[in-house]
């Protein structure tokens, strides 16, 4: 007897968002990347089209970050602190799809760089690589209100992915993205209702501004089940017709995974846990792989080996399983 496969049918699909702009499109990128567009839950190719593979963004800091020493050693002492070189290495050696530039150096406590200095960093990175670029501020709202509009204006037309807009604080960044043709990251604090509301608020300012959702994630072992289920619910809502949740998702996996005790504790202190760096790579890659299954479209990673492991997994998951 023939088996009838039950297939879920969805009424809506995730919006397609293009990152970057080529010279013909008003930017300087060698290529653009498209994320989103899913018509089914992650990798269920037999139920609907998953038109674009999730992409991996390598996280690059504008100053030498206070990251785990083993991680910084692997990244390379010569590049940590030189964002342009770092970005170039991430693209050429580690095969990252794009760069996530973190302007930690603008933070009042870690450099307090001026808007002009931040603009220069972004321009240097743009000159060093041909891939699309994500730029986020320093997490101090007052400072980001100064640096992000300056960056948006100086790179008008590049279609950078700029972050982050939050419910209490979205107007400046939204205006800057609207005026200078960039895409926005809308971040909500582990709350699907606020996630939806923030998208509505941004769309009220501009109907057509492309949005990427950052629902906030957590690392393996630190509430990943909860953040996973929020991401999953957002994606399920999107497919069932909720257009205010039908946006691609970015997950800052590297940041979360490398905060975990398990990623940082030395083998001297925990001999039974195995080698610290190996363990940390696994922690980062496993966290990333979980979010791939929940619907993440852009994974922000730190360790080159985590990038290559996750890349392998994406390739496997994108293999056609339709029947």
């Amino acid at each position: 007897m023939a088996v009838t496969i039950l297939k879920e049918r969805y009424t809506n699909s995730v919006a397609e968002v293009v990152l970057g702009a080529t010279p013909e499109q008003g930017g300087t990128r060698g290529f653009t990347l498209t994320v989103g567009g899913e018509k089914a839950l992650p990798f269920l190719h037999f139920e609907g089209k998953i038109p674009f593979p999730p992409v991996i963004a390598a996280e690059v800091a504008d100053v030498r970050p206070e990251w785990n020493q083993a991680l910084l050693d692997t990244i390379g002492p010569d590049v940590a602190g030189n964002p342009a070189l770092w970005a170039k290495k991430a693209v050429t050696e580690w095969q990252a799809d794009l760069i996530y530039l973190n302007l930690t150096g603008a933070h009042p406590d870690t450099g307090d760089k001026s808007p002009a200095e931040c603009v220069q960093v972004v321009k240097d990175v743009l000159a060093a690589v041909s891939c699309p670029l994500i730029v986020v501020g320093c997490e101090v709202a007052e400072k980001d209100e100064l640096i992000m509009p300056a960056i948006a204006e100086a790179t008008a037309g590049e279609n950078l992915l700029l972050g982050v807009a939050e419910q209490e604080n979205y107007k400046t960044l939204t205006s800057a993205c609207m005026a200078h043709h960039h895409t926005i990251i809308a971040r909500s604090p582990l709350d699907i209702n606020i996630c939806k509301q923030l998208n509505i608020l941004i769309r009220e300012m501009n109907q057509n501004l492309p949005i990427v959702i950052d629902p906030t994630v957590s690392g393996l072992g630190y509430g990943i089940e909860y953040t996973y289920s929020i991401m999953e619910r957002a994606r399920f809502g999107a497919l069932q017709g909720d257009k205010m949740l039908a946006m691609p998702i970015i997950a800052t996996v590297g940041y979360e995974a490398w905060r975990a005790k398990e990623a940082n504790a030395s083998e001297v202190d925990f001999p039974g846990w195995g080698l610290q760096e190996e363990r940390a790579i696994l922690w980062e890659a496993t966290t990333a792989v979980a979010y791939l299954q929940a619907g993440a479209d852009i994974l922000v990673l730190r360790h080159p080996q985590a990038i290559s492991s996750v890349r392998k997994n994406i390739t496997q998951l994108m293999a056609d399983n339709s029947f």
Binding site: N193, I194, K196, Q197, I200, A234, D242, L245
Partner: peptide, 8 residues
């Protein structure tokens, strides 16, 4: 619980 809540 047919639509996801938001203030608007």
């Amino acid at each position: 619980n047919l639509d996801i809540y938001c203030d608007s």
